[in-house]
């Protein structure tokens, strides 16, 4: 009898949580999808990763213990996507040597109405590709695109909060003091 009661209780919490999860899903979908785009151009892998993350959340009965659902979802999404990417690469012998990359790049077909913005993005994109590591690119993305706190970033990158601050500081300091970049920005601004 007790097992039946327990089952019913579990089912109730699961259903109740499914509604909450639905709103989180719709609110987070674009962020996750775009974040995933930085790892791979394979839309199916991104879809699968999002799907697996939420299926696991639906089945997880310990969801009450998750204090920060946003960073929890981001962490599990990142882990899942990397797992799927590595899995798909295993079948491709040529790609196997390739290491995981966080690619911060702008596609040419992106149609910016704002000419100023288009030029700015090209300048920054060139700089980042030439001068930063994938890890630096990722922390920039997490900070400026997703607006995460260092605490949240530290969970995703699996380093301490202090290391996050240091990484971020070094990246930005180097960028802000890069004469080439400043020259381009100044030239464009003054023009």
């Amino acid at each position: 009898m007790s097992s039946i009661k327990k089952d019913k209780k579990n089912k109730l919490t699961l259903n109740k949580y499914a509604d909450e999860l639905a709103s989180i899903y719709y609110a987070q979908f674009d962020a996750l999808y775009n974040y995933g785009k930085r790892f791979t151009s394979d839309n199916f892998l991104i879809e699968d990763a999002i799907q697996n993350v939420f299926v696991n959340l639906m089945l997880d009965s310990n969801h009450e213990k998750i204090n920060n659902i946003r960073s929890y979802i981001l962490v599990s999404f990142r882990n899942e996507l990397i797992r799927l990417i590595n899995k798909s690469r295993k079948h491709d012998m040529l790609d196997q040597v390739k290491e995981f990359e966080f690619i911060l790049e702008y596609s040419e077909d992106e149609n910016f109405e704002d000419e100023e913005l288009k030029i700015l993005k090209k300048i920054l994109n060139n700089y980042l590709l030439k001068n930063t590591t994938s890890r630096q690119q990722e922390i920039i993305y997490l900070k400026y695109n997703l607006g995460l706190t260092y605490e949240e970033i530290s969970k995703i990158l699996k380093i301490t909060i202090e290391s996050c601050r240091t990484l971020m500081y070094r990246t930005i300091k180097r960028m802000a003091s890069d004469p080439e970049l400043l020259k381009k920005l100044r030239f464009w601004k003054e023009y």
Binding site: Y25, Y26, F29, D30, A31, Y33, N34, R38, E47, I50, Q51, L104, Y106, E110, F112, L117, L120, K121, K122, I123, L124, N125, L128, I140, Y141, Y144, N145, M175, A176, L182, L185, R186, W188, K189
Partner: peptide, 24 residues
């Protein structure tokens, strides 16, 4: 310059259609 850097760094997020999200 700081404003230009942030503008240039930020990637414009594409939003997927509601139908696509619903299907998933």
């Amino acid at each position: 310059i700081a404003l230009s850097i942030i503008k240039g760094i930020k990637i414009e997020d594409k939003s997927s259609s509601i139908k696509y999200k619903q299907a998933i």
